[in-house]
Simulated assay, not measured.
Amino acid sequence: MSEQTAKKTPVTYADAGVNISSGDRAKQRIKYLAQKTFNRNVLSEIGGFGGLFRLDGKYQQPVLVSSADGVGTKLKIAFELGIHHTVGADLVNHCVNDIAVQGAKPLFFLDYLATGRLDHEVTEKIVSGLSDACRANGCALIGGETAQMPGFYADGEYDLAGFIVGVVEREKLITGENIHIGDVLIAFPSTGLHTNGYSLARKLFFEVAEYKAGQYINALQDKAGAALMKTHRSYLNLIKKLTAGDYTTGMAHITGGGVTENLPRILPRGMAAQVELGSWPVLPIFEHLRELGNVDQDEMLRTFNMGIGLIAAVPAEKFKRTKSMLDRAGEKFHVIGRIVKGERKVVYV
């Protein structure tokens, strides 16, 4: 070895952009926030190689229901506005809805947060949002991964994804197989775009209209960024009401693909969903997006939820009882159509 080589300064992981000590400090805060969601079924602490969760013995034939998803390009708006506490709720609520429509009760959640350089304040805001949403949905945040990937993500940017597991008694599983011709379709309002369609929405707002995130839009009575950042709604409590009284034969969470592509996922063979356009109020943000890009109606319906976040199929003979229950509970809903004979698609009329 030459004298010049011997005198070289040792290169550390931190020199490559990964500060292990900084990551450890962030994980201590994450541990505290996650523990706030724990219940008696959590058997492990944050920091182990795997999270441990005990399944209650009250289930006779338990079926585990799982789902994974991400926040998507909605994060780009979070970066620009510096709003990081709501994206955690977006992610948790999205995943909760995905399993709840099959009758499942959320058990535990795992998150994946990847960034170029770990920012303690940003990380705490994100995980605080995850923790709060998990607690609100009765779900334990039992683990996850926080990855520092310098050179992979630009400064100030990160990606956020999650994985959820829930449980349902086999006889209570809702798959849509019991949907019948004549069932009434009831839609429940969304709070906005939720977590889908943001690539098109961002293009229309920030490239076509050249809005700034903090710019007030008269048509929306809100700032552009704030309108796009409205939190993805959890329908868990509503779904519990629908399932407890055996009111529904199938439910669809309206996410990417809109009503057009999500509703057919629960339809049995030989059946179609007849949906009446104009039967629900379309939120102003969707009308504004359509006008900005002169977007075709079919494209809008395939890209955005158009103001509908959940659709439930209700047997015609149970509709009056279902309506009474929803009215008493103060749940807003709209009758948007029926199940008809056809081939597993949405027919707009």
Rank of each mutant, 00 (worst) to 15 (best):
S2V: 01
Q4M: 03
T9H: 03
Y13V: 05
Y13W: 07
A14C: 08
I20A: 08
S21M: 15
G23I: 01
R25S: 07
R25F: 12
Y32I: 12
L33N: 09
N39T: 15
V42G: 00
I46K: 03
G51N: 06
Y59K: 00
Y59H: 02
L64S: 05
V65E: 02
D69F: 04
G70V: 10
G72S: 03
I77G: 01
E80G: 15
G82L: 13
I83F: 08
H84K: 04
H84D: 09
H85G: 04
A89H: 10
H94F: 10
N97M: 08
D98Y: 06
Q102C: 09
A104G: 11
K105N: 15
K105I: 07
L107Y: 11
L110W: 03
D111V: 06
V122Q: 05
V127H: 10
L130F: 15
A133Q: 10
G138Y: 10
C139S: 02
L141P: 01
I142M: 02
G144H: 03
E145F: 11
A147L: 13
A147F: 12
A147V: 06
G156D: 05
E157Y: 15
D159K: 07
I164F: 01
V168N: 00
L173E: 09
I174S: 14
G176I: 03
N178S: 14
H180W: 11
H180Y: 07
I181L: 08
D183F: 14
D183L: 10
V184W: 11
V184K: 08
L185G: 14
A187R: 00
S190D: 06
T195Q: 15
T195K: 10
L200H: 05
A201M: 03
A201R: 00
R202D: 13
K203P: 12
A209D: 00
I217W: 01
N218K: 12
Q221P: 01
Q221H: 14
K223G: 11
S234A: 06
L238I: 10
I239N: 02
K240V: 06
K241C: 11
L242E: 00
A244M: 06
G245C: 15
M251Y: 12
M251N: 11
G256I: 00
E261T: 09
N262H: 04
L267T: 06
P268Q: 05
G278Y: 11
G278T: 08
F286P: 00
F286E: 03
H288I: 06
G293Y: 05
Q297T: 06
L301T: 14
F304I: 08
A313E: 14
P315D: 11
A316G: 07
A316H: 10
F319M: 11
K320A: 13
K320I: 10
T322D: 12
T322A: 08
L326M: 07
E331H: 07
F333Y: 10
H334C: 14
I336C: 02
I336L: 01
E343A: 08
R344D: 13
K345S: 13
V347S: 09
